[in-house]
Design a protein around this nucleic acid. Structure first.
Lengths: 128, 128
DNA sequence: TAATTGTATTATATGATATAATACAAAACA
DNA sequence: TGTTTTGTATTATATCATATAATACAATTA
């Protein structure tokens, strides 16, 4: 999987990492049960500290997107187990994000159809 | 207009302020040409520093959402003037955000129809 | 003249982010 | 039995963003 990280960007590295991995899982590039790179491996590839990668993994773990085992490494969690405590409040978060994106789209002159088309296209990229 | 600010949240106050104002304009609660509260007024209401509000206004100004005048205050910019330099790169930003939201939605178990319904509903809240 | 506007300045405090260098528990492996 | 590998913990340190306080400025309005 390709991880695009912008070292000079404003978004923290561990957040960028988390986002890229979530998108990778969403696209199906990372299958359920598949192992992620080790923290040392990924840190070395990206040229960042191991704790930075570990922080991203811990975030993904707290969100129930992955599981970590101190000896076997980190692996993508099966999709059917997505009903835990992390799912609570998710819908509210999504609605809030969509509200902001809708407002920006409106102000930038996008029409309803254009906006929804982009939403459809984005979702279509996901899945197997 | 109601500005919901979470002082203990992780999002910086001036970003929250910016987002709330963008949503307010998008919803039509703040009409084009309408004056925003003065930085001192808003800072006083929210219990934050004037420079924090000023920072939010400067961000909105750089994004061409509002205009500021040192003597007349800040006002919502007309929608027809939304083709400036700030619009460049916006579409890419939107697509990236939608990709992340789509991935999360997929992983949380949302079906295509549910996701698109939320997108429609969010956009429907905007504009007069 | 006095008040109001966004903004600039300087100083300061705090927290988040990121790194470096080690170390640990526990399993896998040779 | 050692050695390696895993995520994680620890401690220390450095840097930057955020936020505040207190003051001041330019320029207009009242």
């Amino acid at each position: 999987m390709v991880l695009k990280i912008d070292m000079s960007g404003e978004t923290p590295i561990y957040i960028q990492l988390r986002n890229e991995i979530v998108k990778g899982i969403g696209r199906g590039e990372l299958a359920a049960g598949e192992n992620l790179p080790t923290v040392r491996q990924l840190a070395s590839e990206l040229g960042v500290n191991t704790m930075t990668v570990s922080k991203a993994y811990q975030l993904l773990k707290s969100e129930e997107f992955i599981e970590t085992d101190r000896r076997k490494g980190a692996a993508v969690k099966p999709a059917q187990s997505m009903g835990g405590p992390a799912a609570a409040g998710y819908r509210e978060h999504l609605e809030d994000e969509l509200e902001l994106l809708s407002a920006e789209a409106k102000l930038r002159g996008l029409k309803r159809e254009e906006f929804l088309r982009l939403c459809e296209d984005a979702f279509a990229e996901m899945g197997v």
